[in-house]
Amino acid sequence: MKLTVGALKNFPAEVVKHIEQVSEVAGYLWEKEWAEKSSGNISIDLSGLFPDSTINQIKEEVSCKFPKEAAGMFLFVTGSGCRLRHLVDRAEEVAAIIAVNQTATAYSVLWGGKSAGFKPTSELSAHIKIHLFNAANNTGKKAVVHAHPIELVVLSHHKLFKDEALFNHSLWKMCPEIKLYVPRGVGCSDYVRYGTEELANLTLEALTNHDVVLWEKHGALATGIDMEEAFDFLDVANKGAKLLLLAWSAGFDPEGLSPDQLDELINT
């Protein structure tokens, strides 16, 4: 089934496009078994895409403490405990577009959030911090996706995970596209319980210098100009992990591309 966007017909075309793309990518995550049950979460910074008159639609507010810099932000966000696979055709139930008030003390739901007891993902703090970082640094990145790419998660249990430089070389060396499409590599973030401020801070620190963050024994997160790019970062990085694990399972340690060959890719 395809996402029905009739309820979005009065929204800006770019907003509709973002949500349709979320629906498409959610299908990929489910097919790849990266978003079991209620795991994973997605957000998109929609600030600046709504006309000023949108504020007149805001009615009931839900108290929530945000960083003061988030005042006035518009955000698409998936719900806590919701299944990402339902984004394919039931997005209004499992996700919402929220508007943060001007004092950053509450939000209002502009669209969606129709499931009983809906509230934004428990990782909302991390998402907000990433969006604020991207906006402050003019990265152009608007989408954030967290999922459980199988092979990356497996490698986060391996001793290789503790040597970030070697970890990235081990992924990059498997084929040229991994170095080309994930040039800043994967940031390896030590285990911290999900939903905590500490995890949010570690994630932001890792994203400052990397394309993907791998949370030890948990999952991975990436951000991009839209959902497709964010997904691509995870997909390509995980391809490197999958190739490495396949080589190991076949009983050999792959030689891979040399450092000089990897440098040549970046310099061409």
Rank of each mutant, 00 (worst) to 15 (best):
L155G: 13
W215V: 07
L155M: 14
E20G: 01
V22S: 02
N41W: 11
A7E: 11
A26F: 06
V145G: 01
E36N: 11
E177L: 04
V154I: 15
G117W: 02
R85A: 13
V212F: 09
W172Y: 15
T196E: 04
H158N: 15
D89K: 08
V154D: 03
S125W: 05
W34I: 00
P176R: 06
Y181S: 12
L171S: 00
D253F: 06
G117V: 01
E61M: 08
D211L: 05
G48H: 04
I225V: 11
C188F: 10
T268Y: 14
L214Y: 08
S63I: 07
V144E: 00
S23K: 03
V144I: 13
G240Q: 11
V62L: 07
E229P: 01
T268L: 14
C188P: 12
P254R: 05
K162D: 05
P183S: 12
E198T: 12
D253T: 11
E61T: 07
E151D: 13
G117T: 02
I19Q: 06
N41F: 06
L221E: 07
P259A: 05
T196I: 08
A71R: 14
V236D: 12
L262G: 03
D253A: 12
K141P: 08
Q57K: 13
E264L: 10
H18L: 04
A147D: 00
E24R: 03
A222K: 10
I130A: 10
K37S: 15
H158R: 07
L160W: 08
E20R: 10
S122A: 14
M1Y: 09
G112M: 05
S23E: 09
K159N: 10
L199A: 09
A200E: 07
A70I: 00
H146R: 03
S23L: 01
G240F: 06
L246V: 08
A136L: 13
H86K: 10
K159T: 10
G40C: 12
S108Q: 02
V5L: 09
L84I: 00
T121I: 02
M227D: 03
H86G: 02
G185K: 10
S39Q: 12
V100I: 15
A206K: 14
E31L: 07
T208N: 14
G72Y: 05
V62G: 03
A147T: 07
W215I: 01
L8G: 02
L132K: 05
H148N: 06
L214N: 08
A116K: 13
V212M: 08
E205Y: 01
L246G: 03
L49K: 11
E151H: 15
S156G: 13
V88E: 05
F76G: 04
E61F: 13
M73T: 03
A143K: 02
E33H: 08
L152A: 14
I150G: 09
L171Q: 04
A116S: 12
S53H: 06
P149T: 00
R184H: 14
I44R: 04
L243G: 09
M227Q: 07
L87S: 03
E164R: 13
L132Q: 10
A99D: 04
I225G: 01
N137L: 05
N10W: 11
E151K: 15
S122T: 09
P176F: 11
H210M: 07
E164P: 08
G113I: 04
S63R: 13
S189Y: 01
V94I: 14
N56A: 14
L214E: 05
I44C: 08
L202C: 06
T196H: 12
